[in-house]
Amino acid sequence: MSLTTRLLPLAAVAALLSPLALASTATAAATHYPCGSTPPDLDPTQGKNKANGVNMRSGSDISCASRGLAHLSHTLNYHCYTLGADGHTWTYARNLTTGYAGWMRDNLLTDRGSQVHCPN
């Protein structure tokens, strides 16, 4: 049996698995909250020194509009977190200092955001 003959079944398996990989990616991305969405307030965490000039977006994706900025001197009230369309986790918070509310990527927050998962 030649090497080419052995590789063909592997190529066929890879072709069959590609749609499954795409479906898995679509499922993971589906947990994100689209622009304009607001989750329930499930997390009692609030405090200062959590965000240093971080955009508060209307959804859990950088393509969603910014509703304002959160700064270290502002008091944030976390609601919950979700997996964003970009594969990063995002926390929804209300800025008690400015009145703005929105989604912020967790890797931009000093404490990595909420520890309570938003419902899907």
Rank of each mutant, 00 (worst) to 15 (best):
N77D: 12
P34M: 01
L17Y: 09
H71Q: 07
D41F: 15
Y100P: 08
L22K: 04
R67E: 11
H88N: 14
L17C: 11
L3E: 12
D41N: 11
G84E: 10
T45Y: 15
Q46C: 04
H32E: 13
T5R: 15
T110H: 10
D111V: 00
T97G: 09
L109A: 03
T110I: 01
D106H: 00
L69H: 00
Q46I: 00
T4Q: 15
D86A: 04
P39M: 08
G102M: 07
P39G: 07
Q115E: 11
G87M: 00
S63Y: 14
T4P: 05
L83R: 04
Q46A: 01
D61G: 00
C118L: 12
L42W: 06
A15K: 05
T25A: 14
Y92T: 03
A30C: 03
A93R: 08
S73W: 14
P34C: 03
S24C: 07
L108S: 12
L42A: 09
K48A: 08
N120W: 13
C35M: 10
P119M: 15
A85N: 05
L3T: 07
K48V: 05
Y81K: 06
A30H: 10
H117W: 12
A11K: 09
Q115F: 06
T110N: 14
L72R: 09
L76N: 06
G59E: 10
S66L: 03
Q46S: 13
Y100V: 07
S66C: 05
N107P: 09
Y33N: 03
L16E: 02
T110K: 11
A101G: 01
N55H: 14
A14H: 04
M1V: 01
V13A: 10
T97H: 02
C64N: 00
H71C: 02
G53I: 12
L10G: 02
A70P: 09
A70H: 08
A15G: 13
T4C: 14
S2W: 06
T98I: 00
R6G: 09
P19F: 09
T38Y: 13
L22S: 05
T110W: 11
Q46W: 14
A15Q: 12
L69P: 04
T27D: 15
H117P: 14
S63V: 12
N52T: 10
A29W: 06
P119I: 13
G47E: 07
A21Y: 12
L17K: 01
L7S: 01
H32I: 00
K50T: 06
K48G: 07
R57C: 00
T110G: 04
S60W: 00
T91Q: 06
N107F: 11
R94K: 13
D111A: 02
I62K: 06
C64R: 06
S66I: 01
C64K: 00
H88P: 02
L17P: 01
